[in-house]
Every structure is written in structure tokens, then in C-alpha cells.
């Protein structure tokens, strides 16, 4: 079965809980509601052969509600087909962990938690993986400035603000013209 057929099969099974399915240049994406996310992932693995989790990632749609979106990249072991599963998450929701489906999801979810601050329910070891325990921010959120914010944990770690001097280029998603989308630097409060 191809990935496109898998999309149809998953859509038929989960019905109204599937938000949208999309085929774009050979990439198959299915967006589902958070409530069935875990079931969709388990079905994809058990019934459709996606036994490998390539990556778990997240998006910050700052200013929208729900704010975050989880992205799961699945593949079969022989690499014959790929599937992308998405689910939107609001700021006060927790995502059911995928570690019981793929053990490899462990560190990916820790990275998402560290960088974006999305919490996973049922994760065996949900702590930061890149920054240190006690760091007060989640750096990949849109409202976190690239230059960083000062923080201090005596004898553990500290951070300062990097001098950006008007650069580097940043981009903002949206439909604005290129001058507005790509300011020299973006200032955050």
C-alpha cells in the first residue's frame, strides 16, 4: 500500500477526527485532532508498517489558537513510504507521549519540551535535553528573542544577551511583502 492509500485508510477509520489530509509533491500529510493523535500514530505503526519515527518536531503559530502544532515524521523500514502526522496543541494542553509506540520518540519529545515547552503526558523521563535543568525559557518560541534573555543559576549556569547590532536577518511567516517579512532584526519586548 502506498502512503496515499494509507491516508485514505486512516481517514476512513478516524472519520471526523481527521482535520485534513494533504498530498503535496509526493509528501503525504494527515492532520488530526489531539484526542486521536496517539491512536493514529499507533495505527500507522501497527497496521501500515511505519515502524520508524524519523523526527518529532513542533511549530509555534504565535498569535493563533491553538498555538502549537506537533509534527511527526514516520517512515517504513525499507524507506518505501513516508507519512507526516500533525496535531494542533493549545498552550495548556498536554500531548500523549509516543514513547510507548516508538522507543525512539523519547529524546525527540524531550527536545520539543525543551525548545518549545510542550509537555508530554506519560513520558518516562521528561526533562530538558539541550539546555540545563532550571533554565527558565523555551528558546524556540516565537516570543523569545534570538539574542536571548538574561538568567542566572549560581554555580550551575548563566546566560546573557548577545549583541546583535541590528542583525542578522530574520524572517516572519505571513503574507506581508518581503520588506515586512524580512526585517533586519525583530525587536521583542
Amino acid at each position: 500500500m502506498s502512503a496515499a492509500q494509507d491516508l485514505e485508510s486512516l481517514s476512513a477509520k478516524f472519520g471526523a477526527d481527521v482535520v485534513v489530509t494533504k498530498e503535496f509533491r509526493g509528501e503525504s500529510t494527515i492532520s488530526v485532532k489531539l484526542g486521536v493523535l496517539h491512536d493514529v500514530l499507533a495505527t500507522a505503526k501497527n497496521d501500515h508498517g511505519y515502524i520508524m519515527i524519523i523526527d518529532i518536531s513542533s511549530l509555534d503559530h504565535f498569535g493563533e489558537d491553538p498555538r502549537f502544532e506537533m509534527v511527526y515524521e514516520l517512515a517504513t523500514l525499507d524507506d518505501s513510504k513516508h507519512l507526516r502526522v500533525k496535531a494542533k496543541v493549545s498552550e495548556d494542553e498536554e500531548v500523549p507521549t509516543a514513547t510507548d509506540v516508538w522507543l525512539g520518540a523519547d529524546w525527540h519529545e524531550r527536545e520539543v519540551y525543551d525548545m518549545m515547552g510542550i509537555r508530554f503526558s506519560g513520558h518516562p523521563n521528561l526533562k530538558r535535553i539541550l539546555m540545563w535543568e532550571g533554565y527558565p525559557f523555551h528558546p524556540l518560541r516565537k516570543d523569545f528573542p534570538l539574542a536571548g534573555r538574561p538568567s542566572d543559576m549560581p554555580d550551575v549556569a548563566f546566560t546573557g544577551v548577545a549583541p546583535l547590532e541590528g542583525g542578522p536577518f530574520v524572517t516572519c511567516a505571513g503574507t506581508n511583502d518581503s520588506v515586512k517579512r524580512e526585517p533586519r532584526a525583530r525587536t521583542m519586548d
Partner: peptide, 16 residues
């Protein structure tokens, strides 16, 4: 000086 890494994660010069 932190070099090209003007970012939240990098110390801007070990002389600090």
C-alpha cells in the same frame, strides 16, 4: 567574542 553565534545559547567570549 562569540563569533558568528550571536544567540541565546553561546557565551559571547570566554574572557567573560
Amino acid at each position: 567574542s562569540g563569533g558568528m553565534y550571536r544567540s541565546y545559547a553561546v557565551l559571547q567570549g570566554i574572557d567573560q
